[in-house]
Amino acid sequence: MDATDWRSPELVAGDCPLSRTLDIVGGRWNAMIIRELLDGPKRFTQLRAGLPPVTAKVLTERLRLLADYDIVRRDEQPGVPPRVAYALTTRGESLRPVLAALWRWGVRDEASWAAAG
């Protein structure tokens, strides 16, 4: 890919890889849920504990959406009641360097804002 391909005006919305990526990681709570799962599988209550302001309804919706994107998988273990854990898929795990790069950018940006203010 040549360095200017990513700026093509023909790449809009769903056709643009950047836009698709931001739809996944940029959706409300999505990056934070992925961040929580980077350390390994977690149960719903563990995810909620790591994301205190998120409601159960919103977390459920976001987990379903991320599962639809093949970022998160729902692992159900037999029992009564069944035990459910959420984990990153291989595709979800591949977002690790993307989120790390966004984190580093955010740290640098925060420092530059602090220095300017």
Rank of each mutant, 00 (worst) to 15 (best):
M1A: 15
D2C: 02
A3L: 05
D5A: 14
D5P: 02
D5I: 12
P9G: 03
L11G: 09
L11S: 01
A13Q: 03
A13F: 06
A13W: 07
G14P: 01
C16A: 15
P17T: 02
L18N: 08
S19A: 04
R20F: 05
T21M: 01
L22M: 15
L22I: 15
D23Q: 10
V25R: 07
V25W: 04
G26C: 01
G27L: 07
R28A: 02
R28S: 08
W29P: 03
N30S: 06
N30C: 04
A31L: 08
I34W: 07
I34K: 09
I34F: 04
E36P: 02
L37S: 02
D39R: 12
G40H: 02
G40D: 08
K42I: 06
K42L: 06
F44R: 11
Q46E: 14
R48W: 09
A49R: 01
A49E: 13
L51I: 10
P52K: 10
V54G: 05
V54Y: 00
A56N: 15
K57R: 15
K57C: 02
V58T: 13
L59E: 05
L59W: 00
T60V: 02
E61P: 00
E61A: 09
R62P: 12
L63A: 00
R64I: 00
L65H: 14
L65G: 13
L66E: 13
A67N: 12
A67K: 12
D70N: 15
D70V: 03
I71A: 01
I71V: 15
D75P: 10
D75M: 00
E76M: 09
E76W: 02
P78M: 10
G79L: 04
P81N: 14
P82H: 08
R83K: 14
R83F: 07
V84M: 11
V84L: 09
A85M: 00
A87D: 04
L88I: 01
T89M: 06
R91A: 10
R91G: 03
G92K: 05
S94K: 11
L95W: 09
L99Q: 15
A100Q: 15
A101F: 06
A101R: 13
W103L: 01
W105G: 03
V107C: 02
R108F: 09
A111V: 03
A111C: 05
W113K: 07
A115W: 15
A115K: 13
A115G: 11
A116F: 13
G117C: 06
G117A: 09
